[in-house]
């Protein structure tokens, strides 16, 4: 059971948004899909959910081709920035209609979430503020109960309390009954400990797809006097450096070489720092 993306290429005019992208999302895992602005995250998610079409390549959901295939597409729910609901519809009616398209939609749960977030069911979609529009879309996403959930910038416009509530609800649901979640976000620190696997996309190409723990344990930073750091880093896979006065921090892929690190400080790198080093131009 998986979403299998094979050799996807997507152009917008002459701009190549995705360049021969292949990646697999296995079942019952939380993925972080990370990339800089314009890297191709939304394009990838939109192609998987059949909202836009690629020039080349295929997407298979649980072995079924995704393109124009209701059985395959019905296995996933994609929440994104765009709102696909009629603007004058009331929230409670959206819930009713969603049930027709997604038979597993849990209306009782959706209403309890609305209550927890303080979303009024009688409001019309068009009257919602940015934050509440996100909350409304999140509630639908958390209630559809599809095996695959694609969340593109799921906390856009949410205050700290509501972001916290969303992460807790997601984890509670996932922990009690695992499913696949792909979260695309710029708030890396907030999801760093939530996700199990990391997929990093840079300029339309996947540059990393592996377990977060493995990625983090295969990288480290070393800091100290510039000359010492330079001697240490010679011949190692250097990702990038930061220099402050006579002091240098280098980010390195691989295992730390403690025997040759006299006078140097070796430390773990967090996901956000590593992401910056991996995606700097």
């Amino acid at each position: 059971m998986s979403i299998e993306v094979k050799s996807i290429t997507k152009y917008y005019g002459k701009t190549c948004a995705l360049n021969d992208v292949s990646v697999t999302f296995d079942d019952n895992k939380i993925y972080g899909l990370l990339g800089r602005n314009g890297a191709g995250k939304t394009s990838l998610l939109s192609i998987i959910s059949n909202r836009i079409f690629a020039e080349n390549g295929t997407v298979a959901i649980d072995g079924m081709p995704a393109q124009e295939n209701d059985a395959a597409i019905g296995r996933l729910y994609a929440m994104g920035e765009k709102t696909y609901y009629p603007e004058s519809m009331r929230i409670k009616d959206v819930f009713k209609w969603t049930k027709l398209f997604y038979p597993q939609f849990d209306e009782t749960y959706a209403k309890s979430l609305a209550d927890q977030f303080g979303l009024k069911l009688n409001k019309k979609v068009k009257s919602l503020s940015t934050g509440f529009l996100t909350i409304f879309k999140l509630i639908v996403a958390l209630s559809v109960n599809t095996p695959y959930l694609l969340l593109d910038e799921p906390v856009l416009g949410l205050d700290a309390n509501n972001r916290d509530l969303f992460y807790r609800l997601l984890l509670e649901k996932y922990s009690n009954n695992p499913f696949t979640v792909i979260i695309s976000t710029h708030l890396i620190e907030e999801v760093a400990n939530l996700i199990e696997d990391v997929v990093i996309i840079k300029e339309g190409r996947i540059i990393c797809s592996q377990a977060r723990e493995k990625l983090l344990s295969d990288s480290y930073s070393v800091s100290g006097k510039i000359v010492d750091v330079d001697v240490y880093t010679a011949g190692k896979e250097l990702l990038g450096c930061e220099v402050m006065a006579g002091f240098k921090t280098a980010y390195i892929m691989g295992q730390a070489d403690y025997d040759n690190a006299d006078g140097l400080e070796i430390a773990k790198v967090d996901l956000q720092k590593l992401f910056i080093q991996l995606t700097n131009i």
């Binding site: 984890l171 509670e172 922990s175 996700i195």
Partner: peptide
């Protein structure tokens, strides 16, 4: 429970 740890500390249940 694992769920309680996961939700409270906002960490993946596998962790």
């Amino acid at each position: 429970s694992i769920t309680e740890f996961s939700v409270n500390y906002k960490i993946n249940p596998a962790t």
